[in-house]
């Protein structure tokens, strides 16, 4: 039996420390009373108060939230369909195309996707703003959603679906009664991933947005370019807390679901 020895423990601690110390530093300094980022001036919530009084930032956050809600929902729908096709249709005409268009955006530099989309929007003479940003985010998030849902689809027992169809259930009914409940956690995870991807995206939004539509990352980016500010630390801490809450509850949900299916 392989044992867990001290070097392994050390590698774990060092690796996780590298991942978490920068985030912790950010959180700690968001509660710093001093405007000087490097000097600790005592505990204070003043940057949080300043944040909520910063109307442009609040507007940007509201815009980002609406875009994330819309794009995550559309992307999850498209991702579910694409995952079904890739996991259930075997070899079909266009499989390579679909698989390629799902895999490429996962790694393709965002500047390329953003530039390409913008040139398309300009060519179509589409007014840029909320909808063009949402379309850009749907395009990227669909690929991530597909991967998450597809990995769930290929691991579960297909005989359940086949049994339902043998017993005379039409395919849509077999899907609703058997497949959908089983892949529901993956669909939820895909939606949350799409939501955070959209909330976080700077590059695609910068290309796809038009005058008057500034998302939260775009606003934060222009603040950050001017240097480190405690207000951005406060905004970051809120975002981190939000995402941590979502991810932890999602993983608990998936775990519970795993236990349920095992029983």
């Amino acid at each position: 039996m392989k044992r867990f020895r001290f070097p392994h423990f050390l590698a774990l601690i060092l690796g996780l420390a590298f991942l978490y110390i920068p985030i912790l530093v950010l959180i700690v300094y968001s509660f710093n009373a001093s405007r000087l980022v490097t000097v600790w001036g005592g505990f204070s919530l003043r940057w949080y108060a300043a944040l909520f009084n910063n109307q442009p930032l609040m507007d940007a956050a509201w815009l980002s939230l609406r875009i994330a809600l819309v794009s995550a929902s559309v992307a999850t729908l498209l991702g579910t369909l694409a995952a079904l096709a890739l996991a259930r249709f075997g070899r079909f005409t266009g499989r390579t195309w679909l698989a390629g268009m799902i895999a490429a955006p996962l790694v393709m530099p965002e500047v390329i996707i953003g530039l390409a989309l913008l040139l398309l929007f300009v060519g179509l003479e589409a007014g840029r703003g909320f909808w063009t940003i949402a379309i850009a985010h749907v395009t990227l998030s669909t690929c991530f959603a597909t991967v998450v849902i597809q990995s769930r689809l290929v691991t579960f027992d297909r005989s359940l679906e086949e049994a339902a169809e043998d017993l005379g259930a039409p395919p849509w009914r077999a899907f609703l009664a058997i497949t959908l409940p089983i892949i529901a956690p993956a669909i939820a995870a895909a939606w949350m991933l799409a939501f955070t991807l959209s909330l976080d995206d700077l590059v695609l939004a910068s290309f796809a947005s038009g005058p008057g539509a500034t998302t939260l990352p775009m606003r934060l980016y222009s603040a950050v370019r001017l240097g480190v500010t405690p207000e951005v630390n406060a905004a970051s801490t809120i975002l981190i807390a939000l995402v941590a809450l979502i991810v932890v509850s999602a993983s608990l949900m998936v775990k519970k679901n795993l236990l349920d299916t095992r029983r």
């Binding site: 774990l12 996780l16 991942l19 978490y20 920068p22 985030i23 530093v25 950010l26 300094y29 980022v37 991933l193 955070t196 909330l199 976080d200 700077l202 990352p217 934060l220 980016y221 950050v224 480190v228 951005v232 630390n233 970051s236 975002l239 981190i240 995402v243 941590a244 979502i246 991810v247 932890v248 993983s251 775990k255």
Partner: peptide
């Protein structure tokens, strides 16, 4: 499972914020 979540969690938090954190460091 907990270790996996710990490794994935930073990936879910904002990319921009994580780069920004290094500016302060």
């Amino acid at each position: 499972p907990a270790l996996l979540v710990l490794v994935i969690l930073p990936f879910w938090t904002s990319f921009l914020i994580r780069v920004y954190a290094w500016m302060a460091i």
